[in-house]
């Protein structure tokens, strides 16, 4: 399987490049996945007052740190897009690798948080709040991992000045991953 060429890359029958159109279609389906999670949370949260007490056990500092890390990595990827549009593939690749670094940091903080919570007895089976917490954050983290892999693969091409239009697609996806955290963070950490 080659990542160097794609038949549809140069086509634009809708006025929007096909790659970008595909990315927005993917994100529309992601809205239903994450939106469904948030909707279920809200329904159960309103019905179970004790969820507010459980939410008070989540660590706001680590949640905020992760929000900061993802937002910073979002800035890096948008600057990579800028560099790619200016034709500077090498700079774009460096910024993309920095974004991947941000993803690693996010996962490291999340792992620390999971370990801390599990040690205090807040496991996935503790009660429905923690089941939801682990499901939502793990699905989000899996998206972070998927984004990191995609960004790394595209950065290899970008470093050689190839397929620079793909940098933007990675950027749109990564911004969405950050956007989901912007919504999950207050939901799980701030609202008590």
């Amino acid at each position: 399987m080659s990542f160097d060429s794609s038949i549809a890359a140069g086509r634009s029958t809708t006025g929007i490049p096909n790659g970008r159109l595909a990315m927005w279609t993917l994100l529309a389906s992601e809205i239903v996945i994450f939106g469904g999670l948030v909707a279920s949370y809200l329904l159960y949260r309103f019905h179970n007052a004790y969820w507010a007490v459980e939410a008070s056990h989540t660590n706001v500092v680590t949640g905020a740190t992760n929000a900061f890390i993802l937002l910073t990595s979002s800035l890096l990827i948008v600057l990579a897009q800028n560099a790619a549009e200016a034709g500077d593939g090498k700079k774009a690749a460096k910024l993309m690798l920095a974004t991947v670094g941000g993803g690693f940091l996010f996962l490291a903080v999340k792992s620390y948080e999971y370990i801390h919570e599990i040690q205090h007895g807040f496991t996935i089976g503790a009660n429905p709040f923690w089941s939801f917490y682990y499901t939502a954050t793990a699905i989000h983290s899996s998206h972070v991992v998927a984004g990191m892999i995609a960004i790394y693969i595209v950065s290899l091409g970008a470093a050689k000045g190839k397929n620079l239009q793909r940098v933007e697609l990675c950027g749109i996806y990564w911004h969405f991953v950050d956007l989901v955290w912007i919504l999950l963070f207050p939901l799980l950490y701030i609202v008590k």
């Binding site: 927005w24 529309a28 809205i31 239903v32 939106g35 909707a39 749109i172 911004h175 950050d178 956007l179």
Partner: peptide, 27 residues
């Protein structure tokens, strides 16, 4: 705000919004 300026939804073709609104209706 982030979607508008970082994801450039503010300058994206309008019918991309149809995709997103359809997803929201399903939601």
């Amino acid at each position: 705000y982030k979607a508008s300026f970082f994801m450039h939804l503010n300058v994206e073709k309008h019918w991309i919004w149809l995709f997103l609104i359809t997803a929201l209706i399903c939601l």
